[in-house]
Design a protein around this nucleic acid. Structure first.
Length: 259
DNA sequence: ATGTCCCAACTTTTGGGA
């Protein structure tokens, strides 16, 4: 099974590229963030023509998350059903061939002294509560744009981020707490100390200068990570005409798992 | 330090957000 997470930065602006990427890569499950559109514009029919059923949690101009699947899509849940939902359409969950999948767009936080930073922390706390205890038999993948670089190796220049969001102990502790529920950051587990990024600012030629962050994560429960056969970042998708500022993160795992 | 992109609207230019 091939599962992908990709912050597309407007599915309206990105549809041609996303469609071409789907055709070239044939994911079984595609989690998207920042669709930036309402259900009226969401390409349900176009995705269906490509073989996917999809579920969207959108709000229009901002945010918006989706899951497209060609291996089933059951038990769709939009948002947490708690006050943290006021921070926007940022979480959608569904079960795809027995794997519980969450597509998340964590609030950016803006700046350390901005009220939105505390809301970001609260949102991450809510995500941890929503995940809760993970039974050993449960297959769960929590994927998306976390807007947190889990460690300094995930930052092109840690000195440039002193005093900024995405790198603080408060944010990193919360991501670590989510992993401590029983989820593996499978890219980091696979690449050791190697530096690799999933996001590069549009400004300043950041992509070509290698100024990036690894903020898009795929966190897998033990039953999934034990079946993992590949995990990678499709950096090439950040190249070319009208790219998203994020690259897709791709994982593959044997599923149903070998017994 | 801020050179880009995307969206909406009091829309052809500006402001907000990332």
């Amino acid at each position: 099974m091939k599962l992908v997470t990709w912050n597309v930065n407007s599915l309206t602006a990105r549809w041609d590229r996303v469609a071409a990427w789907i055709e070239a890569n044939a994911p079984d499950v595609l989690c998207m963030q920042e669709t930036k559109q309402d259900d009226e514009r969401f390409p349900f029919k176009e995705l269906e023509a490509l073989g996917y059923e999809s579920a969207h949690h959108g709000e229009g101009r901002w945010n918006g998350v989706a899951i497209a699947s060609r291996v089933g899509l059951e038990g769709v849940r939009r948002g947490f059903g708690t006050p943290e939902d006021e921070h926007g359409a940022r979480m959608i969950a569904a079960t795809c061939r027995g794997v519980d999948v969450m597509s998340c767009y964590v609030p950016n936080g803006r700046a350390l002294d901005d009220p939105f930073f505390e809301k970001k922390l609260a949102w991450l706390d809510r995500l941890a509560l929503d995940i809760g205890e993970i039974p050993a038999t449960r297959a769960l993948v929590v994927a998306g744009d976390f807007n947190v670089a889990p460690a300094d190796v995930d930052v092109w220049d840690p000195a440039a981020f002193v005093g900024a969001t995405h790198v603080t102990p408060e944010e990193r502790d919360r991501v670590a707490a989510i992993c401590a529920l029983g989820l593996d950051d499978v890219i980091r587990a696979r690449y050791g100390d190697e530096q690799l990024f999933t996001w590069w600012d549009y400004r300043n030629g950041a992509f070509h200068r290698g100024w990036g962050l690894r903020i898009d994560l795929v966190l897998c429960s033990k039953s999934v990570s034990a079946a993992l056969t590949d995990a990678r970042v499709d950096r090439d998708a950040r190249k070319g005409v009208k790219p998203s500022d994020h690259a897709p993160v791709v994982i593959e795992f044997d599923w149903p798992a070998a017994t």
